[in-house]
Design a binder for these strands. Structure first.
Length: 106
DNA sequence: GTCGTGACTAGCC
DNA sequence: CGGCTAGCCACGA
């Protein structure tokens, strides 16, 4: 509580984990949550990425739903789709093709 | 310290 | 197969 100075440890971990995702790969909120030791805090992960102060810095566009859907994105789904496509991720109707194949594992 | 909400997820109907 | 519901953690007011 009352950590109005810097980002909470949790958020910091989220950003670091997200930045670890290799180019051309994608990850899920649950996967990241688990990686940072809070598997059930996938919602907090999304919340952290939403506030993401490292917006274009951290590859938050590589984070999607566990169902293979894109999920939301601060710059818009269209932008997310375009970015992923440039990295080799094919998306069809807001859904990643070969999702499990493109899924990045820590 | 409590309440409400979110870039989610898995389970049910 | 598809839509809806409830549960989860952390944060802001």
């Amino acid at each position: 509580m009352l950590q109005s100075k810097e980002l909470s440890i949790f958020e910091d971990l989220v950003y670091q984990a997200t930045s670890k995702i290799a180019r051309g790969k994608v990850s899920t909120y649950a996967q990241i949550a688990k990686e940072i030791g809070r598997e059930k805090s996938y919602r907090a992960v999304g919340n952290a990425l939403h506030k993401n102060p490292f917006a274009p810095l951290v590859p938050c566009h590589r984070v999607v739903y566990s169902t293979g859907r894109l999920g939301e994105y601060a710059f818009g789904k269209k932008k997310k789709m375009a970015l992923l496509k440039e990295e080799g991720i094919i998306i069809s109707n807001d859904q990643i093709v070969d999702f499990q194949e493109k899924l990045f594992k820590f």
